[in-house]
Amino acid sequence: MTSKTVLISGASVAGPALAHFLRRDGYDVTVVERAPTLRDSGYAVDFRGAAFDVLDEMGLLDEVRTHDTKMRGTALVDETGTETGRLPAEVFAGELEVPKRELTRILHRITEDEVEYVFDDSISSLVQDDSGVTVEFERGASRRFALVLGADGLYSKVRQLAFGPHADALEHLGLSGAGFTTADFLGLDRSGVLHQGNGRAIYAYGPHDGDRMAVSLSFATSSPALDRRPREEQEHAVHTAFADCGWVAPRLLRAMTEADDLYFSSSSQVRLDRWSHGRVALVGDAGYCAAPTSGMGTSQALIGARTLTRHLAASADDHRTAFTAYEAELRPYVAENQAKGREGARAFGGGATS
């Protein structure tokens, strides 16, 4: 084993971006992903601010722009569906929005020939010593790496193993919700519609894919416990929250029950005193999720990946120095985004505090 061997957990956005920059700097990179294949799910992701510089540095900006959803804004409606105002496209779509599956495919394509991808597996144990990390996997044989980087999202397995239980890192913002796609019976043409009030919100935009629209049904909750509960319990909670809601709520509740792409998640932030522990470090949502209501998840993932790899290169691969500099540079940016996430959760009816 050399000092240039790195294991990355997670093959969504932060993981492949890390892999790209690390390979460029001469690292031998392995990416492990618990999904059996490259994920083809997720609706749309947006880019803001310095994320464009990262895409440009990767040589991907022009290609990513070809997948622009060209969203045209969101109508605000009351309980009868009557429009009461409008929000500009930038509120939900940022400066550029693309389907997440397209970004994931692009990042995988530019790394697959030089990076080892291991799908359908996950890390089960991390044991560090002065010279490296011994990693055990749920399926594959144990291996040894110089560094392990967690880019595996809100419920990061790397964070759980190296830093402690999820409950110690997650701060619930008082909002949970179900997302799914259904027939675009609202006739949304690259636009969205939002109804909110009484601690709940209905947001739909489309067409997500042909004649379909993406739907989010969000409501106030006291904890993220439903994230790990069976689907029937999640659906019951959504039905209960929207039982007396008018407009198109009854039809959307029926569509949710029939949906084969339902996902349920809570708006939570990851709040840690440090983003590294020995030879293990966290990037993106795994280390400092700002919540979907911030609109900054993808941008943070890309900027975090570039920032960490830049400091590794500048420190001549001294991971302690690099991890410290990475965190010192990025924390103010993350703090701003997490403030936006809390503000966004409150706007959608959550109980987030400052």
Rank of each mutant, 00 (worst) to 15 (best):
A17E: 08
V334N: 02
F52A: 04
R251N: 12
P250L: 11
E327I: 07
S131H: 13
A183S: 14
D68N: 15
D53N: 13
A345H: 05
E116R: 15
A255H: 06
L103Y: 12
I123D: 04
S222G: 06
D78K: 09
A167Q: 15
A314M: 08
L262R: 10
L76Y: 05
F92N: 09
S12W: 04
A281N: 06
V127I: 10
K4A: 12
S122W: 12
D129N: 05
A316Q: 13
L272D: 13
L217K: 06
F163Y: 09
A51M: 07
G349Q: 05
D168I: 05
A345F: 03
L60G: 06
E95V: 01
H208R: 11
G73S: 02
D152W: 01
F52Y: 09
P165E: 15
H311D: 08
A339R: 15
V270K: 08
V280T: 14
S266E: 13
G187P: 08
F145E: 02
G153F: 06
Y288T: 08
E235N: 00
Y27G: 07
Q196W: 11
F323S: 07
E343A: 15
E57H: 13
S41M: 11
Y117F: 14
A220C: 12
T182G: 08
R254I: 07
E79I: 06
F119R: 00
R65C: 10
G94T: 01
A183K: 12
R139Q: 07
A14P: 08
Q300H: 13
S131Y: 10
S218H: 06
V193N: 10
V248Y: 04
A313Y: 02
T293S: 15
S268Q: 04
K70R: 14
Y263N: 13
A162K: 05
E116N: 13
A178W: 02
A316M: 10
D211V: 10
R228P: 00
T298C: 14
A183V: 14
G197Q: 07
E95C: 07
L38K: 01
T240M: 02
R279E: 10
R72E: 06
S276A: 11
E95Q: 11
Y326P: 03
R229D: 12
P16T: 07
V45F: 05
G164Y: 02
L217R: 04
D130C: 00
S267C: 13
E97D: 00
P207D: 10
M58S: 11
M213Y: 08
